[in-house]
Design a protein around this nucleic acid. Structure first.
Lengths: 147, 147
DNA sequence: ATAAAAGACTACTAAATCTATATACTTTAT
DNA sequence: ATAAAGTATATAGATTTAGTAGTCTTTTAT
């Protein structure tokens, strides 16, 4: 499961994506719109700012905005940035690799082999889907929902 | 990430799969072979027995064995049985569904939509791969490894 | 110049979950 | 009868996650 941190980050980026090009958006606005605890969101946005994904502006009229076009921000980036595991086993993770202590020979582990496949399938989707894609999907969903 | 419980369960089932048709295998043997804490493994095997996946025999010469052919036990079953989440979001899980409290309209959530896709891809692999397949994979891996 | 707005940064706490261990009991083979 | 092996429940310890609190800094408006 993804952590709340990762979930909140994705939600916030979608909101900021919709706002791309406009004036910076305040944390409290994002927080109330998306039902995210404000103080928690502060930390998350800060992380993403420090990673270069967002810019921030202090003072009156300040807030957060996307640095890049939402079409260039991929979901996998957000997962990794917020520490979300893409792989289901540590020994299969590309960015957070860790040996399984119980395993004697990783190279011949059949369970691992299956989860490499799972990781590849997941990674394919998450590295092909951008925040802009998510926004597009939402528009389609809303259309279908209203019918 | 999968829990250790799930990982241990899968490992144990692979060992029991290799032993299918033979005499019951003792917990302590499985535990030492796979480097799993014995007492922890006891609980896990019990769970799987209560779920009808394993049989057990008490007393001298007792132990555990698979009830069904390893070709008929699918990885997804093991994940679900040991509480492992297949989905990356609670609102996307088929067997452990839970509403995301922050979400206002699930039906039009783009993030969710993407993770439905991820779940489907994962599920496809895990519900097509049996313990017997894992054992086969291991044989292939060993062959390639020895070359 | 000053006050208010808004983010930056650090620390901490509470809750949940996971992993593992301990203890006592039951069944079965010899 | 005894030893081997699983059954069952409780609990402890560790780790992670989620969330809160408080203070500091920067910027804008007046």
């Amino acid at each position: 499961m993804l952590s709340k941190k990762t979930r909140y980050a994705l939600k916030a980026l979608v909101v900021l994506g919709k706002n791309f090009g406009g004036a910076p958006m305040q944390i409290s606005k994002i927080a109330s719109e998306e039902h995210i605890p404000k103080k928690f969101l502060e930390q998350i946005l800060l992380d993403m700012r420090n990673a270069g994904l967002l810019y921030s502006k202090k003072g009156s009229g300040g807030g957060y905005g996307l640095v890049k076009d939402p079409a260039e921000i991929y979901m996998v980036q957000v997962l990794r940035l917020t520490g979300g595991p893409v792989a289901l086993l540590p020994c299969v993770s590309l960015n957070f690799y860790q040996k399984c202590d119980e395993c004697t020979n990783e190279a011949t582990c059949g369970v691992r082999d299956v989860f490499v496949e799972v990781r590849n399938a997941t990674l394919k989707i998450l590295s092909e889907t951008s925040i802009a894609d998510v926004i597009n999907r939402e528009e389609i969903l809303i259309k279908n929902f209203e019918e």
